[in-house]
Each structure stands twice: as C-alpha cells, then as structure tokens.
Amino acid sequence: MPAKQARSRATRDALVGAGRKLCEIKSFDDLSVAEIAAAAQCSVGSFYSRFADKDGFFRALINDVVDRDSAFMHSPLDCAEHLSTEEILADAIATTLKAYRKRRGLIRAAIRRSMTDPTVWEPFRLHGQAIADRLVARLLPRFPNDPDIERRTRFACQMLYGTLNNAVLIAPGPIQLDDDTFEPELRRVFHQITIGSGASDRPPDDKRD
C-alpha cells in the first residue's frame, strides 16, 4: 500500500528499518507483526495500514535490503581501475560475506519461501547477477587473451553464492559462516577458479616498481 503523505512514508520506513535490524539477529519467520511494530514504535494497525500482510512486508523488506546492498557492493567494483586483480577479488568476497552475515535471517527465510514461490528469490538473483556482471567487466580487460575468463568468473560467483546460501540455510560445516577462516578460504577458492595461481594480480597499466 503506497504511502500518501510524508508522515505515512516515515512510518513505513521505520517499519522496514525495524524489520531490517531484527533480521540481523533472528529469522524473519520467527518475527511477529507485533514485534516489528513495537521495534518501529508504532501500532499493529499502522503496520496493516501500510502493508496488506506479513508477506507483503517481507517482499518490501527484501527490495529494501537489496537496494542498500547493491549500492554498498557495486561502488568498489565501479571504482576498481587502480586496484590489483587480487584486491578486486578480495573486496568482492569481503563485501558479499559481510552482507550475508548481516542479512542471514532474511536470506534464510527467502531461500525457504523460494522453494514454493521462486519469485521471492528474484531480487537476490538479479543482485548477484549484477555483481557478477561488474566483476566480469573489471576482469575482461586485464586478461584479453583468456577466452574463458568470463565463464570462470561467473562460475566462481555461482560457487560463492551457493556456498553462502548453504551456510546460511543448513550450516553444514566444517567451516561456519562466522568462522575467521571462512573468508580466506572463500577468497582462495574464488581466486583459483577465476584466474588460477599463475595470473598477475596487477592491472595492465600498473606502473609500480
């Protein structure tokens, strides 16, 4: 239900913000409407005057966090001309893992719901695709003689998101999402799949000694 006035919009934003923060500490499926409204310091009636139901709120929340995470994750890749290849890959891993750790409650609920309604996952899928597109755009000019760099980069992204989704959903181990070794292991495997161990980690025009 679109907000018609500034005050109504502020209340709606407060509800979405409360849901976003609550999902940092628990799964969305474990939240009640009353809990969300209380965290936003408004009434349950205010919630239902802006969202048809909890499912409508869930989709609004997904769109909100994807928009936020898109701005957070795209910027480093859009300004990567002077970074080494190793730095670009490391930053992509670090920002993705940080987002998953922060959004795990929402991502877990989205994965479960997508089993019966694939449209729920669509914003996350498009977001991951956009990240892969930007990463490919940064790597292609650095390896002009490698015809498989795009395919390997996209597969590395597929591996990354698959591993993170699995860690959020069922935590199979042996390395868990919050373990200190998770990020360096992801970075090592991503680097190996994408460019291997023999590729240079400097941009083509790097003039450093």
Rank of each mutant, 00 (worst) to 15 (best):
R9C: 02
D13T: 02
A18W: 04
R20S: 10
R20A: 09
K21A: 12
K21R: 15
I25F: 07
S27I: 07
V33S: 03
C42T: 15
C42M: 11
V44M: 14
V44K: 15
S46N: 12
F47R: 09
S49I: 01
F51A: 05
A60M: 08
D64A: 15
S70K: 11
C79E: 13
A80V: 14
S84T: 14
D91A: 06
Y100H: 06
R101M: 11
K102E: 06
R103M: 04
I107T: 11
A110F: 06
R112A: 14
S114Y: 06
T116I: 14
P118Q: 07
T119Y: 10
T119C: 03
W121F: 14
R125H: 14
A130F: 12
A130N: 11
I131V: 13
L135F: 10
A137R: 01
D146H: 00
D148F: 15
D148L: 05
E150F: 12
R154D: 00
F155P: 04
Q158H: 13
M159T: 09
P172N: 02
Q176E: 12
L177Y: 03
D180V: 13
D180P: 03
F182D: 03
E185W: 08
L186C: 03
G196C: 02
G198W: 00
S200K: 07
D209Y: 10
